[in-house]
């Protein structure tokens, strides 16, 4: 299954969760948020939320700015 994580296509096993996709791009245990197709997925729901082909996932964290 191919999904788009932070703008880059990525192969994940069918039925992969948001938690698995996030873990593929960061090891950070906190300070990270995920949005699936422009909707925030609460961290408590990452494990239970499964991805589908062509889903778009954004994974953000705080950086220097402002």
């Amino acid at each position: 299954m191919r999904i788009i994580v932070n703008g880059e296509p990525r192969e994940l096993p069918d039925g992969a969760s948001v938690a698995q996709a996030v873990a593929a791009v960061t090891a950070a245990a906190s300070g990270v948020a995920a949005a699936l197709n422009d909707e925030v997925v609460r961290r408590s729901a990452w494990e239970a939320t499964t991805l589908r082909e062509a889903d778009r996932l954004e994974v953000l964290t705080a950086v220097q700015g402002g």
Partner: peptide
């Protein structure tokens, strides 16, 4: 103090947080 929100960067060193 303000911070910006950006896509995670696996190569980033040190966290502003």
């Amino acid at each position: 103090t303000t911070v910006a929100m950006r896509r995670v960067d696996p190569s980033a060193r040190g966290s502003v947080l």
